[in-house]
Amino acid sequence: MGQKKVLMIGIKKEKKMSSRFEILLKIKANKPDLLDLPIIDETVFYEDIDHISEFKKKVEIVGGNVFESSSNQDVINQVKSLYPSTALNFSVLEGTEAFNTIDLNTLKKPHDLVDLDVLILKGTFGVAENGAIWISDKQLLVRVLPFITKHLILVIKHSDIVPYLHQGYELLKGKDNDFGVLLSGPSKTADIEQSLVIGAQGALSLSVFLMQD
């Protein structure tokens, strides 16, 4: 029995190897002569516009709200007036621990976050052309957070807004993120007769707070 099992595993492994080998061999035989990889010339795309106001415009186009803020405490105050009676709140901003009604350190599994009402996170950078904000594992603590929360608040500095995605990926060069997401607006769908509905499987709303440096 034991021997048979070992043999089966062996066959399976060999089969797997052979598919890999077969696919690579066919591709090698069928691919065309090597073509050049183009260089991305970003100057072709550059426009002389105010990228901060462009960013704000795009966040609103994709269904988010934009606020200006002066300090972490000011963000908390504004969020409290937006969502005055929510039960489960969590913020990663320094000095705002009083806002938190859950403790991520005692969280047993990510599923327990399913009733989270308000989440405040920091973004690494924002992209003016599409209103997207980059968040990575380092700021996330638990990966599912920005998706499972009902209301998502992202805080970002004016100086962290780049014009185009090209500059965004330059900032990511060499950064070793286990997971990261470019997030633009609240979750949405138009799968029923093309009618836009904000709030699909992810967050129901997105508010972006911009801070001066």
Binding site: V62, N130, L165, Y169, G180, V181, L183, A190
Partner: peptide, 30 residues
């Protein structure tokens, strides 16, 4: 390369639905 994502993520959603980018572009590495 990773930098090539900047080209394709600019093209994809605009061509698909006219959005400047999809709501979530999630990068799974580990």
């Amino acid at each position: 390369k990773q930098e090539h994502l900047s080209v394709f993520l600019r093209l994809l959603a605009r061509s698909a639905t006219g959005q400047p980018i999809t709501t979530y572009s999630s990068h799974f590495k580990r």
